[in-house]
Amino acid sequence: MLTSLSRLSNLLVTVAVGPGILTHEYAHYAACKLSNVAVYTRPALHPFDDSALLEHESVDSFGADLSIAVAPFLANSLLAFVAFALASGLDSGSRLLFLWLGFCFGFTALPSATDTETLLQTAASLPATVRPVGYLVAYPVRTATLSVWATGILTFVWTMTLAGGAVTI
């Protein structure tokens, strides 16, 4: 019974924000390629499973780790902003499509706890002179992803910020 509910939940999430999930994972993929990090699988949606995860080799470099972790934030935020901007100038039918896309991208922009789990370790491997800067960046990013509640609130606030005037409540 629990497995069936989990599968149904995963299907509903995939239908609701599938484009955002894919762009989130492809942003990781692009960051891996740009950082010369080997990728083992390409992202794909699995509607009844909770995985669309990108598998890549472990990363020892803080710069590569950070770029892979935050790439979806940059890519999906940009896509959400563009979708919301386009929505604000369209008629009702097209507007709804671009609003949905904006929400898909916005709600999937923040990194997950899995995306940021190695940031503190790679920051610790930085040379002593720049390690404090690494921690200054890594701690807030990691902390923001540790709590599902905090991430949910941040996601909502960030998406509504990106939506700007395109969405009126």
Score class of each variant (00 low, 15 high):
Thr3Arg: 14
Leu5Ser: 15
Ser6Gly: 14
Ser6Thr: 06
Arg7Pro: 04
Arg7Leu: 08
Asn10Phe: 03
Asn10Asp: 12
Leu11Pro: 03
Leu11Val: 00
Leu12Asn: 02
Val15Gln: 00
Val15Pro: 01
Val15Ala: 11
Ala16Lys: 03
Pro19Gln: 04
Gly20Val: 01
Ile21Leu: 15
Ile21Thr: 07
Leu22Lys: 02
Ala27Asn: 04
Tyr29Trp: 12
Tyr29Lys: 05
Cys32Glu: 02
Lys33Asn: 03
Ser35Thr: 09
Tyr40Val: 06
Tyr40Gly: 05
Pro43Ile: 02
His46Lys: 02
Pro47Arg: 08
Pro47Ala: 05
Phe48Gln: 05
Asp50Val: 08
Leu53Asp: 11
Leu54Gln: 00
Glu55Gly: 03
Glu55Ser: 15
Asp60Ser: 15
Gly63Ala: 07
Leu66Tyr: 12
Val70Ser: 02
Val70Met: 05
Val70Asp: 04
Ala71Phe: 13
Ala71His: 08
Pro72Gln: 08
Leu74Arg: 01
Leu74Thr: 09
Ala75Ile: 11
Asn76Gln: 10
Asn76Val: 06
Ser77Thr: 06
Leu79Met: 14
Val82Met: 03
Ala85Ile: 05
Ala85His: 04
Ala85Glu: 01
Leu86Met: 07
Gly89Ile: 04
Leu90Tyr: 06
Ser92Val: 08
Leu97Tyr: 11
Leu97Val: 15
Leu97Asn: 03
Phe98Met: 09
Leu99Asp: 01
Leu99Trp: 07
Phe103Cys: 04
Phe103Pro: 06
Thr108His: 09
Thr114Ser: 12
Thr114Ala: 07
Thr116Gln: 01
Thr118Ser: 09
Gln121Phe: 13
Thr122Tyr: 00
Thr122Gln: 08
Ala124Pro: 02
Leu126Gly: 01
Ala128Thr: 08
Thr129Gly: 01
Val130Tyr: 07
Val130Ala: 09
Arg131Glu: 13
Pro132Arg: 14
Tyr139Cys: 07
Val141Lys: 07
Thr143Lys: 13
Thr143Val: 14
Thr143Met: 10
Thr143Ala: 12
Ala144Tyr: 09
Ala144Lys: 04
Leu146Lys: 15
Ser147Phe: 10
Ser147Glu: 06
Trp149Pro: 00
Ala150Arg: 14
Ala150Gln: 08
Thr151Ala: 11
Gly152Leu: 05
Met160Lys: 10
Leu162Ser: 00
Ala163Thr: 00
Gly164Phe: 14
Gly164Glu: 11
Gly165Thr: 12
Gly165Met: 11
Val167Tyr: 03
Thr168Trp: 04
Thr168Phe: 00
Ile169Ala: 03
